[in-house]
Design a protein around this nucleic acid. Structure first.
Lengths: 140, 140
DNA sequence: CATAATTGGTTACTTTTTGTAACTTACTCT
DNA sequence: AGAGTAAGTTACAAAAAGTAACCAATTATG
């Protein structure tokens, strides 16, 4: 695939081809499904929610809120809806009193969380380097 | 490690132990370096910038802006500064006229981009499922 | 018996972050 | 002379996120 950039034809790598197929600047970014999916799946709060649901089979709203330290009701509620709509998270309501709502991962969600754990493992190992870099940079 | 949640001791998995060591709600989230690192490294625009720099050895500001479709000068500039401070990106200025500034990945940045490519590969393969889920959800 | 607490959120309002578009400086090309 | 280029910056508008109060129903506490 070639893409028109600044009136020059530029080769796009196979791996990125589908990912950034909208590269031609006549196409709007909405045409790139990966960016669309990514905007939900690699959101800061979404990642934390998914990781915790990956460890505990089910979690209720208020418990999840305590694990995902610092999240507000509003954002937690909103992210859970979107994660459910995208197929990562399941939501079960029990008609008890007071009401009980259990959140968990779907199989699809579990397969994604595997990848997330790889990523966070890297971050865990490398965060000292980043913090050291940041400090060095600040001194210059 | 145990962590105090709702006055109950809850076991925290080894893998998440360091990652969410601030879980005790008396500690502020700033004490978790992984969340700190993640807030830069898994930011939407940062990911796109890093992926493109992963493919092209060097890119200049305006070219990068065309690849990272939809990004504004302001955000591109800001993200590049942060990515540089955290050690992912190198910035070289050539005192030509007009000025030339080349951005590239550091070795550290390259090691991270490998992980990012795994993640985006998953998204590339699974985005149809997500979009299908989303549509189904909308109909219910 | 009244008050407080619990559940899973929602709502109105404020603050922070983004997006938009114009502008900069110093030179080159037409 | 006027437009174009480079790599950004800046002021202002729009969108997203944080804050805190509130909901209804019921149970536990004093």
């Amino acid at each position: 695939m070639d893409t028109l950039i600044e009136n020059q034809r530029v080769a796009v790598p196979k791996k990125l081809e589908k990912m950034f197929g909208h590269l031609d600047y006549k196409n709007p970014p909405e045409l790139c499904p990966v960016r669309d999916v990514m905007s939900v799946a690699s959101d800061q709060w979404s990642i934390l929610i998914l990781l915790w649901l990956g460890y505990y089979p089910v979690l209720r709203f208020n418990k999840l809120k305590k694990y995902v330290y610092g999240i507000s009701n509003k954002v937690l509620s909103q992210r859970l809806k979107v994660l459910e709509a995208d197929g990562y998270v399941s939501r079960k309501v029990y008609a008890e009193v007071p009401i009980r709502v259990e959140y968990g991962l779907t199989d699809f969600g579990k397969s994604y969380v595997k990848r997330l754990l790889d990523l966070t493992e890297w971050m865990q190992q490398n965060s000292p380097k980043v913090l050291a870099n940041r400090e060095k940079y600040g001194l210059i």
